[in-house]
Nucleic acid binder design. Structure first.
Lengths: 102, 102
DNA sequence: CTTTCACATCATCGCCCGCTGATATCAGCG
DNA sequence: CGCTGATATCAGCGGGCGATGATGTGAAAG
């Protein structure tokens, strides 16, 4: 059975701002203030997106004083990479695997 | 420079039905009728999604008589896999890369 | 040619979701 | 404690996008 890509994770990453946040967090661990500076988004907006990313299991929070640091969970990205690699491998053999017209 | 994941492709794959279509096409090349059977979606709805997938460069069309076969472009999936792998690798080193509180 | 079937396009509706503003919470500091 | 700044939560608005129906096009079958 071909394990498909997790729809929830992809759906969450489908938002441009969230994908941007993930890309930023892949470089360094940041807190909300940094993310506000980097993205130019409002704090409220960002906090909402961080909640979505947290509930999707993509990021973890690490309180540090009155700041909240966010860091990526690399396993999630690794899983995505493997799932897409598997899909790609399957797709390469699917070209000749043409189902007959009904 | 860290090459981020292509936001357009991810955004297109963010829709559950489209991701399902891509997963199906990774197994075998199908025409619209097959996809209608497999997904249970209306033909019009499916045709709209196929247009989006086509314009995003994720699938190719191959006319065969009065049927239209769709097949995946594996390079796109391979690219995604590599980009996520790169992100994951970067994220693993980003844990200690913590920017100072402002 | 006429019919039928596969598929695409167009217009429209409805709803989800991202954005915003107001407000709550909580930690540090004087 | 009172103040300030960082962050979370909540309610409401509005735009974009996915779903649907009607219709157009083009190719095979009869």
């Amino acid at each position: 059975m071909l394990t498909s890509v997790d729809p929830d994770v992809i759906r969450v990453l489908g938002d441009p701002l969230r994908l941007r946040i993930v890309t930023l967090l892949a470089r360094e661990t940041l807190c909300t203030t940094h993310l506000v500076e980097e993205t130019g988004a409002k704090q409220t907006n960002l906090s909402n997106h961080m909640k979505v990313l947290r509930e999707a299991g993509i990021v973890e929070t690490e309180p540090c004083g009155r700041y909240t640091y966010y860091k990526l969970k690399p396993e999630v990205l690794t899983g995505l990479s493997e799932q897409f690699a598997e899909l790609a491998a399957s797709a390469r053999t699917a070209a000749e695997n043409k189902r007959a017209c009904p």
